[in-house]
Computed example of a mutant assay.
Amino acid sequence: MNTARSVFRRAAVAAAAVVTALVLAACGAGSSAAGAPTSTPTTSAPRSAPAGRHDRADVSFAQRMIPHHRQAIAMADLAGERASSSKVKAFARKVRKEQQPEIRTMTTWLKAWGEQVPRGMEGVGHNASAMPGMMSDHQMNRLKGASGSAFDTMFLTMMIKHHQGAIDMAKSEQRHGAYGPAKKLAATIVTTQTAEIAQMRTMLGTGSPTATTR
């Protein structure tokens, strides 16, 4: 009788131990699941979206410089067809190579900021005459009608004025802009186009532009 009771008691203890172990395991699993860090979905910015604060000066800079660059490229295209000097043609190719990527960069900024991208050679909220250095339709038509050495002189004289206008706008961005990449681009424009003005003046054979652009 004692032996049977002893066996029964040992079986009961063993069963209780198994139940306890199962309960503890279940609790432990629940605690781990509850305590595990929950991953929160994050929405990353589009890869093309510019990071950093920008202000209205940055927007205005891009909206004005894009059509300004487009006119410089239009002038450079004419040089490829009408210039007589190989140096002028090479310079025109350089202008196109530099300014096309800058247009794409500024266009990306405006789209990411939800701002209007200018069409053609008109700035957003600005007519061509309001942008420093922009040629009028009359001046562009005169350039289109020229050829040979007369074109070379007219092109260089007009492009010097055009570059000076771009430098003025870039310096304004450096003073008033807030967006780092835009200020950096402005600094590049100042440095590059200042050097190119000196190069064009050398090609003209004068230390300062003397030909009229009227």
Rank of each mutant, 00 (worst) to 15 (best):
F8A: 14
W113K: 08
H163N: 06
T3R: 11
G205V: 11
A186N: 15
G52M: 02
K184S: 10
V18W: 06
K89M: 04
M75L: 13
G30T: 11
A62H: 05
T194W: 05
A130Q: 13
K184C: 02
D58M: 08
Q164N: 12
S31A: 09
M106G: 07
A45F: 04
T213G: 01
V88D: 13
S149T: 05
R82I: 01
M158D: 14
A62D: 09
V19L: 15
A4P: 00
M203P: 04
V13P: 05
G180P: 05
G120A: 08
S6C: 04
A186M: 15
P181S: 12
P209V: 10
S60G: 04
G30V: 11
T20S: 08
A83M: 05
S84K: 06
P46H: 02
R104P: 00
M134R: 08
R214G: 14
I66C: 05
G28E: 08
Q100D: 04
S48C: 00
N2E: 12
G80T: 05
A195G: 07
V23H: 03
A166W: 09
E196I: 03
V18E: 11
N127K: 02
K144P: 01
G52F: 03
H126Y: 14
V19T: 14
D77L: 03
F155Q: 04
D168A: 15
S136E: 08
A21F: 06
Q63A: 10
K111E: 11
A11L: 15
A150I: 00
R82K: 14
L24C: 13
M75D: 04
G148Q: 02
T43C: 03
P41Q: 02
K111H: 07
H126S: 10
D168H: 03
M140V: 02
G133L: 05
G205S: 10
G165A: 14
R10I: 15
K97R: 12
A90H: 00
A36C: 01
T188S: 12
V13I: 15
A12Q: 15
T108I: 08
M154P: 02
K89L: 02
L185V: 15
T194C: 07
A4Y: 03
A16W: 04
V88E: 14
V190K: 08
A12N: 12
P46I: 01
